[in-house]
Amino acid sequence: MFEAKLQQGVIFKKIVDAIKDLVKSVNIDASTSGLSMQAMDSAHVALVSLKLNENGFKDYRCDRPITLGLSIENLSKILKCAGNDDTITLQTDEEEPSSLKFFFENQQASKISEFSLNLMSLDSESLGIPDTDYSSVIQMSSAEFSRICKELSSISETVEIETSKESVKFSVQGDIGAGSITVKNNQSDKDVDRVDLQIDQPVKLTFALRYLNMFNKAVSLSSTVSLNMSEENPLMVEYKIDDLGSLRFYLAPKISD
């Protein structure tokens, strides 16, 4: 028996909206500790990793580990029927479920929707991602980072991110010209302005902006984002989801000449 009830169903809607341009189908693994999901884009350049802890749910029960193979497109269609204020419950009582039940309830419990989504059997192509001690970590406003990526992608397809003790520099070079945006440490008490740099080792890495712009669809999940980098390593972009878990994106760097 598996049942997970999320009080703020809108979070689940936002998660699916954030990943639907990147991955087509995913395996959600349910266990006693919660839900986890890892999936890559078709080119295996980017990876999304979701972890939702059981104690972040209003109700959570998972008698034995199960894997739920979902088409993101079909999941989106079902979730469109959920109101932003609804609770969302996932439920199946089969051991090898062929479908997953969804219940959407409004606040007054006066409207209850029930859907059943057919499940897919997907071969799991998961990667082992070691816990990495990143040498450069940048915490900043997710809206600000999203804006920087959007603005710079009109000049070039790739952005070079270079960190130093007191600042991070986003540089682009394109046919029309070049540009850079330098962001300094800023302990402002205004979320949108605060920038927190923890630079043990400076890094200089280049990434494809179209992936970063896809990751930034998660901006509605958290007002802050962290960029985690080490030389010769994929970038890890993390959106923490208040007392529920985190949505992480990994992006392999470009081969710099």
Partner: peptide, 14 residues
Amino acid sequence: VEDQFNLAKFYEEV
């Protein structure tokens, strides 16, 4: 995309 690394270069399949 020829000038783009792939994640398999950094992480093992499990």
